[in-house]
């Protein structure tokens, strides 16, 4: 357990007045608020600020912290503090606990070990021991990677995750949970599925939170997805593209026979309306022509290429203009 220098966290001196503490906290809270600051450590910083302010804004807590905080590691100080705590709990002082951290971020109510050992609360029974109001449980966010085909056919996938929970003897534990979740047909990359009531348990009989599952598609060698549209690179021989052909194309919905019109140029997109992801507004399937040249590696191929010279084709007719 590490000592926390709350004065340093807020960048103030030990002699700071209540007004200075509030001012510095507000300034830093605006700067590091996770809704405003996108840096990855902003949320952690914001929590630390909240904890420091929680202690320093309250004259009682600040006094305790000043008196015992720095020497907390030594047993003697701890003993002395605990004695005083018992005295307060017996009804002679204002007592600790009973406050509410107004966070709202997940786990924002969790203080550092240092804080909890100094001011109590938290460890046993979680929030429920501090507040007796009914409260909705926290939402759980999870994500799942699925093959693109699931979005075309729909599927059921099992997800496993850990959720904070309270054991029968009142300890805060992480419970392992598995759920079979229906992947609805037509879902798109990045969309979220909401399972009402599958989040963490509520407090004091409050409703359970919700669960949010973010959908991500597996990377695919042939398919590329943009919203509800799916792109397939279709390798074609030069003569198939030039003369037209009928080819088999594997799509996420199964194989299709596709007619390639004659004179299809490299990069040309053939649009199959409504054959993309079957979302509420169905996407389109784009087959992109990708002409592959046969290697001139044997006599026969070389001969054909030699003959093609007679076409007098100039690929650079419009080059550099």
């Amino acid at each position: 357990m590490n000592y926390k220098d709350y004065y340093k966290t807020l960048g103030i001196s030990k002699k700071a007045t209540a007004a200075q503490i509030k001012k510095e906290y507000r300034k830093l809270a605006r700067k590091y608020h996770p809704d405003v600051n996108k840096a990855s450590d902003a949320e952690q910083k914001f929590k630390e600020l909240g904890e420091a302010y929680e202690v320093l804004k309250d004259p009682e807590k600040r006094k305790l912290y000043d008196q015992y905080g720095a020497d907390w590691k030594t047993g003697k100080e701890r003993e002395q503090y605990q004695k005083q705590q018992q005295y307060q709990d017996a009804g002679f002082g204002s007592g600790g606990g009973g406050f509410d951290f107004g966070g709202g971020f997940e786990n924002a109510g969790q203080y550092s070990d240092f804080f909890e050992s100094l001011f109590g609360g938290g460890r046993q029974g979680g929030r429920s021991s501090r507040q007796n109001v009914q409260q909705k449980g926290e939402d759980i966010n999870a994500s799942i990677v699925i093959p693109l085909e699931d979005a075309f056919q729909g599927a059921s996938r099992k997800i496993t995750f850990e959720t904070p929970s309270i054991s029968p003897d009142g300890q805060r534990i992480n419970k392992k949970v598995s759920l079979n979740v229906k992947i609805p047909k037509g879902i798109k990359n990045g969309q979220k599925i909401r399972l009402a009531g599958q989040g963490s348990d509520g407090y004091n009989g409050g409703a359970a939170g919700d669960m949010y599952i973010k959908i991500e598609f597996e990377k695919h060698r042939t398919f590329r997805v943009e919203g509800a549209d799916v792109y397939i690179n279709l390798p074609l021989a030069p003569w198939e593209a030039a003369l037209g052909a009928q080819v088999n194309v594997p799509t996420p919905a199964g194989n299709i026979k596709l007619k390639i019109p004659e004179g299809s140029a490299q990069g040309k997109k053939l649009r199959l309306k409504g054959k993309g992801i079957p979302a509420k507004q169905a996407g389109d399937l784009y087959v992109v022509v990708n002409i592959v040249l046969p290697p001139a590696s044997d006599e026969k191929a070389r001969k054909v290429y030699e003959e093609m010279k007679n076409l007098n084709f100039n690929p650079r007719a419009n080059f550099g203009r």
Binding site: K136, K182, P184, I187, K188, I193, R194, A196, Y212, I213
Partner: peptide, 26 residues
């Protein structure tokens, strides 16, 4: 027997009532 949970795609929930919104946002 496997219980399969069916959810809703959040992007497509465009008709939340006042009470549903309250419930989701706590």
């Amino acid at each position: 027997v496997i219980k399969v949970y069916q959810g809703t795609i959040t992007d497509e929930e465009n008709d939340l009532t006042l009470l549903q919104l309250c419930d989701i946002c706590n």
